[in-house]
Design a protein around this nucleic acid. Structure first.
Length: 837
DNA sequence: AATCGGACC
């Protein structure tokens, strides 16, 4: 069988080393997380050698220090977590670059995959540094080596499909303020466009005299910086890292001379010289609350518009107003915009911008009036053959099982299989079936390694998908739509697509979220299929007929049509958009949905009767919370600092993913019951969360072990602590909480803990309408609307009967559930509702 | 009548 092994990698020296590593690993197949950790470390060292040996080749290069030592502690922790997440990707670097040699250039940057690879390299570099105990000189930025690296990278940049269009793009942007760019996967748009534009004359900062709201004037520097928005944090960070390398500049805050930075929640890394800044859409919206005219920027590049998250729609609306208005807040300096999408549904976007430009600039009637240019860039993908099911499929788990083994029997190695399913339940069902079937498989055949992948999966288990398969083994990744955009697994040549996904839809009339399995769109189907063609030609098996495919919607339903709009509208109100109904929505939500959200904001006193934003509302908009949770926080202020601190702890839990690990099996559930006994509170989930945060925070020796012991998600708890710190800091700045060194105000040791009653009453200020009372048959009915609702099985109150409940979320899956539930008294509910009248 | 797809401030 050595043949098989040899076909996996070609012949360079570095790859041989890597191959040997893999063989060694096969002998020590690790089954426990602990073993995996060790193995990883071993491999990393090997990886380091691989890189060294390839240095002269130039495919990979160990980065010299980029001054990371200046970063604060928390950031380091996050980087380590980050690196670990993507660690496995580095193991694939070898094979990826081999592919580059035989057919495909290694230069095309694919945000989620390739750039992550860079990150892992840096992680490895840091490890080396620690190992070798390098002297402090290493913390200085080595500009020469940065320049050399950039020079080398330039050669690969030149081969990107987009590179030939650089001059056309520059020229378009000189003529027009807005450009729409359709660039398929692998075109290089996200990394190259900012570099094409940053040295343009219009991108220089200029001083302008601006009349402020109070009538006074002041001189302000306008422009000079380009922002590129991303839907996801990891993408923003890894793109920034890559572009910094290509530009030969240190990254972010590591040097005052750094020209490239990024900004995501909990992690902003910029310098006074930052000219290219990658940020999440949410972060740009946050910046706009403080700087509505985006005076720092000469251009905003909006990337991945086709994903149509609610934030990108808001950004687009604000941007349209900014490019078409009189620019008074910018001293007349234009703000340019590049809107980038992977799919070609851009005609509507063109209309969206040109409509605004026409109406606003009609009077000026100048022929050089900003128009909208459009640019198409070819992508770089390997062909993927589509195989449809000849018959409609009733049970896609069963159908997937058959197709998986059909591929496994028929198709040569290597070539991993990525299966798109709908959720944890289907993933685990198929995992069981594949493993069961594989036990009876002919031992002469390659083995299969089944790897589940979904967001709720613990980090260590997620990482397993990035490890290369042992020799003679085919990886079968069973994933939710996390693998559509957020996670890229290398080595995949076969995709199996069930054609469905769980999609959340907010039902305005009922105030209810539903999470149902629905057919995906054509563009999602194309996206899934594309995952088979990133490294080599591939195949996509669709578990539905071609007729079914043709009947699918063209694109995903924009999130703005599927979600509760209150947070979006509060942000708009805080930005000074008074007339919500006339806001330039890319897709206009139904009037009813807008009105419902406005009413909701009015109910929680975020708006005045006039529809103007209230001072409470303005405060809420600045908090990184949903309006309801923001309202709860402000209500807790009234109950004193001790209550506020506790409420912050609970809110922090509610605003991250589930802190308790899922218990799927019956034994696990019992196990969890025992492990969490000291955390459970009979008052409900809110106080249980409080107990959990406080116990976790009090654990000073080994929080990870504590989390494992209590079957609590360590990853989620880390996020909780981040949110908690952010909220606490914000409350201190707003003088809602005393400063920590203010002795008189710190929690006095003699006083009792704030009563659970005060805490729950604070919550009712935001959740008065999320309440239900028990009826004689023992079920619950909502106080407003009288609908049946059941306590979700994940709640500590599941199966319990109390007078009334308050809940964080009202979701419909196969029935209506209340999630995040606490027991309350009906008269509290009455009082809270009365206050809203 | 027994359990949530994926992001983000």
């Amino acid at each position: 069988m050595p043949e098989k092994v040899h076909t996996y990698f070609s012949e360079s020296e570095g790859e041989k080393i890597q191959k040997e590593t893999l063989e060694k690993e096969e002998k020590a197949v690790a089954s426990t997380v602990l073993k995996e950790e060790k193995k990883k470390n071993k491999k990393k060292k090997q990886q380091g050698k691989t890189e060294d040996s390839e240095l002269k080749d130039g495919f990979l290069q160990v980065k010299t220090d980029s001054g990371d030592s200046h970063k604060n502690k928390k950031r380091k922790r996050e980087e380590i977590v980050d690196r670990d997440t993507t660690d496995g990707a580095s193991a694939h670097v070898g094979s990826k670059h081999v592919n580059g040699k035989v057919g495909k250039s290694n230069g095309d940057i694919q945000k989620e995959g390739d750039v992550k690879t860079k990150k892992s390299q840096q992680g490895d570099t840091r490890r080396h540094k620690n190992f070798k105990q390098q002297p402090s000189i290493a913390s200085q930025t080595n500009f020469n080596s940065l320049r050399e690296r950039a020079k080398f990278l330039y050669e690969t940049r030149k081969k990107l499909p987009i590179f030939a269009s650089a001059e056309e793009i520059r020229s378009n942007m000189r003529k027009n303020d807005v450009m729409l760019l359709i660039g398929e996967t692998g075109s290089g748009k996200s990394t190259q466009i900012p570099q094409f534009l940053v040295d343009e004359a219009w991108c220089k900062p200029v001083d302008r005299v601006i009349t402020q709201e109070d009538g006074t004037t002041k001189t302000v520097s306008v422009g000079g910086c380009i922002a590129i928005t991303q839907p996801r944090r990891v993408a923003a960070i890894s793109l920034a890292r890559r572009v910094a390398e290509e530009m030969g500049t240190p990254l972010g805050s590591s040097s005052p001379a750094s020209k490239v930075g990024y900004s995501v929640r909990f992690d902003t890394s910029t310098s006074p010289s930052t000219r290219v800044k990658f940020l999440t859409e949410g972060m740009l919206l946050q910046e706009m609350l403080h700087d509505p005219w985006l005076t720092k920027y000469s251009a905003i590049i909006v990337d991945e518009v086709h994903e149509r998250g609610v934030n990108v729609d808001l950004v687009m609306g604000f941007l349209r107003n900014l490019v078409s208005g009189k620019r008074e807040g910018r001293g007349g300096v234009p703000l340019k915009a590049v809107v980038m999408s992977a799919t070609a549904d851009m005609e509507s976007l063109q209309g969206f911008f040109s409509e605004g430009l026409n109406t606003q600039e009609k009077e000026q009637a100048q022929e050089k009036a900003a128009g909208v240019s459009v640019c198409h860039i070819k992508g770089r993908q390997f062909p993927v053959k589509t195989i449809y099911s000849p018959e409609p499929v009733h049970d896609f788990v069963d159908a997937a099982l058959k197709v998986i083994f059909q591929i496994h029997y028929k198709e040569p190695m290597p070539g991993d299989i990525l299966v798109f399913l709908t959720g944890q339940e289907t993933v685990e069902a198929l995992e069981y079936l594949v493993n069961d079937y594989a036990t009876g498989m002919d031992p002469a055949l390659p083995k299969v390694l089944v790897l589940p992948l979904f967001a709720a999966l613990p980090q260590a288990a997620q990482q397993r998908v990035f490890l290369p398969a042992p020799p003679r083994t085919r990886k079968i990744i069973l994933a939710t739509n996390i693998a559509e955009t957020s996670v890229t697994v290398s080595g995949v040549r076969y995709v199996v697509d069930c054609g469905k996904a769980k999609i959340k839809q907010f039902r305005t009339r009922l105030g209810l979220d539903s999470l149902l399995v629905k057919p995906i769109s054509k563009s999602a189907a194309i996206q899934r299929k594309g995952r088979a063609g990133r490294e080599a030609p591939g195949q996509c098996y669709r578990l539905y007929t071609e007729k079914d495919y043709l009947a699918l919607d063209e694109t995903n339903t924009p999130e703005i049509l599927r979600c509760d709009l209150s947070q979006a509208l509060l942000n708009m109100k805080a930005r000074g958009v008074d007339d919500i109904l006339n806001f330039p929505f890319l897709t206009r939500p139904p009037r009813e949905a807008l009105e419902k959200a406005l009413l909701q904001l009015l109910n929680i006193q975020a708006l005045e009767e006039t529809g103007q934003i209230s001072s409470i509302g303005l405060h809420m908009a600045k908090l990184p919370l949903t309006p309801t949770l923001g309202r709860v926080l402000l209500a807790a202020v009234e109950n004193g600092p001790d209550c506020l601190r506790d409420v912050i702890d609970i809110i922090s839990c509610l605003s991250v993913e589930n802190i308790f690990l899922n218990t799927t099996s019956e034994e696990k559930k019992e196990e969890a019951e025992v492990a969490r006994r000291d955390l459970y509170r009979r008052e409900g989930d809110h106080l249980t969360m409080l107990a959990t945060v406080q116990a976790y925070a009090a654990e000073n020796t080994d929080r990870k072990a504590w989390a494992t012991r209590h079957m609590v998600s360590h990853r989620a708890m880390q996020s909780v602590m981040d949110v908690r710190k952010q909220l606490t800091t914000q409350c201190r700045q707003a003088k809602l909480l005393p400063h920590p060194d203010d002795k008189t105000a710190s929690r006095s040791s003699g006083s009792t803990a704030p009563s659970p009653i005060l805490i729950l009453q604070s919550f009712l200020a935001g959740f008065a309408t999320n309440t239900a009372r028990i009826v004689p048959d023992g079920s619950y009915r909502t106080v407003v609307g009288n609908q049946t609702v059941a306590i979700h099985p994940s709640s500590v109150l599941f199966g319990k009967k109390v007078e009334a409940i308050m809940y964080n979320e009202f979701v419909f899956t196969n029935r209506s559930y209340a999630r995040g539930v606490s027991a309350v008294q009906m008269d509290w509910v009455g009082q809270a509702l009365a206050r809203q009248e």
